[in-house]
């Protein structure tokens, strides 16, 4: 019996690490009275399955968590769970949706293929960033040098840059970016560094990019050319419509 939850992480709690959020959620699930299942063995732990990590300092409208429940135990109705859980969470962490998963549903780690991000870059004009963005989209490859297990490796970020647009805001620039997660997640900071490097130098843009306010708005599962969210609320499945009618 697996439950999937969506939650937001906004405001001061954006400074919590992924590990911190995991611990907060584990306590909240217990306090909310969900009959969470425990692993067997010498040191049993609650069976919570987290999705993609969100770096310290970033906000999100779309974080996900799967929770295994004891199959036979009494439990609240699924539509009651978001409010129940939010009542046990600190300000800024809010559960916004819950669904029961069909047995055999792939895990979040396996199935999520991309995220959409809002990057708010303050105090800079649109033009240089828009030009840099065009340059990124026009490039055949975007090599980045990384140190992995002590070795220098070169990777191409271009296949993971799925979409990118820019618009001016009252105090800077808003970037809307979709970044892939397979074979690995591109961290927003990595992308912003690549973007900053294409901006005029010297200039305020690179530093402003590094200090951008980051918000994840969506996670996506793209499968056989169809893109959907890990919890779909807007379009209920035909199955559910059938039953409701």
């Amino acid at each position: 019996m697996r439950l999937r939850l969506r939650y937001e992480k906004l405001g001061k709690v954006r400074f919590l690490s992924h590990r911190d959020v995991a611990r907060v959620l584990e306590r909240a699930v217990r306090r909310a009275g969900l009959p969470v299942a425990y692993s067997e063995g010498f040191s049993p732990h609650a069976r919570l399955h987290f999705g993609l990590a969100l770096s310290v300092g970033h906000e999100s409208l779309a974080e996900y968590l799967d929770v295994d429940l004891v199959p036979s135990a009494p439990r609240p109705a699924v539509h009651e769970i978001p409010d129940l859980l939010s009542g046990c969470l600190p300000e800024g962490l809010t559960a916004t949706a819950a669904v029961d998963l069909v047995p055999g549903t792939a895990s979040l780690q396996e199935s999520v293929t991309s995220s959409t991000w809002e990057f708010r870059v303050a105090g800079v004009p649109l033009a240089p960033l828009a030009a840099a963005a065009d340059e990124l989209l026009a490039a055949d490859e975007l090599p980045v040098d990384l140190t992995r297990k002590g070795k220098q490796v070169r990777e191409d970020l271009r296949p993971l840059l799925l979409d990118l647009s820019t618009e001016a805001t009252s105090d800077g620039v808003l970037l809307l970016v979709e970044l892939g997660t397979k074979p690995r997640s591109v961290r927003p900071a990595e992308f912003l560094a690549v973007l900053g490097a294409r901006c005029p130098s010297p200039g305020p843009e690179a530093a402003a990019c590094a200090a951008a306010r980051v918000l994840r708005t969506h996670q996506w599962i793209t499968h056989d050319g169809v893109r959907r969210e890990p919890i779909e609320l807007a379009a209920p499945s035909p199955h559910a419509v059938e039953r409701a009618s």
């Binding site: 001061k12 709690v13 400074f15 690490s17 306590r27 310290v56 600190p90």
Partner: peptide, 15 residues
Amino acid sequence: LPRVQRPARYIGGED
């Protein structure tokens, strides 16, 4: 706070 180690220790908000 984005520039310091473990910024969560400065935000309060404990249950």
